[in-house]
Write a protein that binds this DNA or RNA. Structure first.
Length: 602
RNA sequence: GGUCGGGUAGCUCAGCUGGAUAGAGCAACAGCCUUCUAAGCUGUGGGUCAUGAGUUCGAAUCUCAUCCUGAUCACCA
């Protein structure tokens, strides 16, 4: 196969058009001036050239110029079979042979739509999830995890060497709160004794702490203290802070309790991650990195990039960048959040030859990452300046924001279970799982339930705040994961039946004339590798999701139209199968980039 | 108040490196076992693309201003 044959139709035509214009009007044409778009449904043709950019050079009306260019292309390029001009738009029809070759080519590719990484590929590290260990994961984490994982898959498909990482916030006052409450009120309860998942158990005591703490505050206020004083003076808070001090001093007893309870939490998290289908190549813990930043800060001081105030605190002056000054070390020498991130960055850089770093973190930290980028750059990290903060919006409920105090937090485990449960019920009601082994049935329910959840979240532009509507997400109609999965399963069923009848679906050189419907569908399929590239640049799973949905819609319509026609000549039948096979391939690839499984049957 | 997002159909969202009459789904209404599997398909109605100006052959898309809305502006993480 010649390289140029694999080229996308737009790229190919761009060169051809540049040539044509130069020959026709003797002017230089920039590639950027050549703009194509898919021909609108109501017009004849496959692809449309916008001729406005050339009318000046041609010194003709848009219609005339379009006509001339069209004539020229049709005469000189066998790939163009027909054309028509409407206003300044030149609609081109592409020869069927081109499409047929393209389908055969796609069919023969085992890794359609992906580039493989090699030793020369850039290495990108993607940080996502970043949980606290004092409570279980919730809906917001789900968005984070799904985005992070999907992003990794997309970048992998774009030929990057991807390292997925997770930074676990396993230390600090919040963990001590859980520990203290467990110690005081837990009566030795363990995940085993209570039958609770470890992260949920620890989360339970975090809530207990909050409740008891509030009671103490109330009492103190009744005794005449101000709210601020009461918050500071509540015995529970004092004890928790004392615990944190002990932890930092390495107190054996506290440290052991901390290890035990974190152990419970990790076991719980692992289960949730597994359920969601996400994973990591390396995990960092803040307890191991929170002290490391100091070294780099000292280095920055020596280099004169940072400065020390009279009280001994260390700052970065970012006023020349239009930002404020930022504290990096407190007067007592202890580190802050920013310092930790510097330390983690250093450790990572020591461990991996990173070219590019991506942080999947909510948009409430936009400022933090803006600052981090500048500071890392000043401190000499080569990827600091170009680090990507993959920022995403909050997930809200139809009733409003999630508030942990008001108990409106949607727990990740509960949600996944509910989705899978609903998928199972619906399947059973519809009799879809008859003839399946219980294992198969369970698998399908899991794929569909998770597919619904994942697709619902990923199809929305990450930057936007989104509303998660549990009811709507388990509605399997419309632009949803299950709808796409269903189409895939149906296609697979067609292909199975064809195979049973011994129909070969690899020969496409029948000289069948393709209708507009068909070429539209092939175009969608052919565009896919470029969509991957585009999404890689924009880091957006939503692009993939909406693209796949478009394809599925088109496919269903195409199939519907053909069924009405009932024209069952061999060429038509064959073309239908070829298109089905290719469509299934694209759906699987696309959904794979979103981390969504597609069942063979459902 | 400063900085950074967002404002597109009743609802949830696409479209944004400027291109043709603004696109889906949900909801509403009307039809369909016509396909491979009705988790489906077809059709109808539904819009001042927040507002106003500018840039040009052309603006939902770019620029500026205004309004609404979210985030952030900690020696919290």
């Amino acid at each position: 196969m010649i390289e140029s044959d694999k080229m996308n139709i737009e790229q190919k035509l761009t060169g051809i058009v540049i040539n044509a214009i130069q020959n026709l009007y003797q002017v230089e044409v920039q590639e950027s001036q050549v703009q194509f778009q898919k021909t609108k449904k109501e017009f004849e043709g496959d692809i449309t050239l916008v001729v406005f950019p050339f009318v000046k050079a041609a010194r003709k009306s848009p219609e005339q110029a379009g006509e001339e260019i069209g004539q020229y292309l049709q005469q000189h390029e066998p790939i163009i079979s027909k054309f028509n001009v409407i206003k300044g738009f030149l609609n081109l029809s592409i020869a069927s042979s081109y499409w047929i070759d393209l389908l055969n080519d796609i069919q023969s590719q085992t890794e359609f739509g992906t580039k493989t990484a090699d030793e020369n590929s850039e290495m990108v590290m993607i940080e996502y999830s970043s949980p606290n260990t004092n409570k279980p994961l919730h809906l917001g984490h789900i968005r984070n995890n799904l985005l992070g994982f999907s992003l990794s898959e997309i970048m992998k498909a774009n030929g990057y060497n991807v390292v997925k990482t997770n930074i676990v916030n396993d230390r600090g006052i919040h963990i001590c709160k859980s520990m203290l409450a467990w110690q005081k009120y837990g009566k030795g309860e363990t995940p085993e004794s209570s039958g609770m998942k470890g992260d949920h158990l620890v989360g339970k005591y975090y809530v207990v702490f909050d409740k008891e703490y509030k009671a103490e505050i109330k009492t103190l206020m009744e005794q005449g203290q101000s709210e601020d004083d009461a918050k500071k003076n509540a015995p529970l808070m004092i004890e928790a802070q004392e615990m944190l001090r002990k932890w930092e001093a390495g107190d054996t007893e506290v440290y052991e309790l901390w290890s035990t309870m974190n152990g419970w939490v990790y076991k719980g998290f692992d289960e949730t991650y597994k359920k969601l289908g996400v994973n990591f190549d390396c995990i960092y813990y803040e307890s191991e990195t929170y002290l490391l930043g100091k070294e780099k800060v000292e280095e920055g001081l020596a280099k004169g990039v940072l400065y020390k105030r009279e009280d001994g605190s260390v700052w970065a002056d970012l006023t020349t960048e239009g930002l404020d000054e930022k504290l990096l070390l407190r007067a007592d020498g202890t580190s802050v959040y920013m310092t930790q991130d510097i330390g983690t960055a250093k450790l990572r850089y020591d461990n991996y030859p990173i070219d590019k770093m991506v942080y999947v973190v909510g948009n409430e930290q936009n400022y933090h990452f803006q600052v981090l980028s500048i500071i890392l750059d000043k401190l000499g990290f080569k990827w600091g300046k170009d680090l990507v903060h993959f920022s995403y919006g909050m997930v809200e409920l139809p009733e409003g924001k999630m508030k942990s105090r008001e108990g409106t937090v949607v727990d990740a485990d509960d949600l996944v279970d509910e989705m899978v449960g609903t998928a199972r019920e619906t399947s059973e009601e519809l009799g879809k799982l008859e003839g399946c082994t219980p294992e198969e049935a369970g698998n399908i329910a899991r794929m569909v339930g998770l597919g619904a959840l994942k697709y619902f979240i990923l199809k929305v532009d990450p930057r936007k705040n989104m509303t998660f509507n549990p009811k709507e997400s388990i509605d399997f109609n419309g632009n949803t994961g299950p709808f796409i999965q269903y189409t895939h399963a149906r296609i697979k069923s067609v292909l199975r039946k064809a195979a049973e009848q011994g129909i070969k679906i690899t020969t496409t050189d029948t000289a069948c004339e393709l209708s507009e419907k068909e070429t539209g569908l092939i175009q969608l399929i052919a565009e896919f590798p470029n969509i991957v590239e585009a999404a890689g640049k924009e880091y957006s799973p939503s692009v993939i999701a909406n693209y796949v949905y478009e394809l599925v819609k088109e496919y269903n319509q195409f199939y519907h139209d053909f069924s009405i026609l009932k024209e069952e000549n061999e060429a038509v039948k064959n073309m239908r199968l070829i298109l089905s096979a290719n469509t299934a391939k694209v759906i699987k690839t696309g959904m794979g980039l979103l981390g969504i499984d597609v069942p063979e049957r459902m």
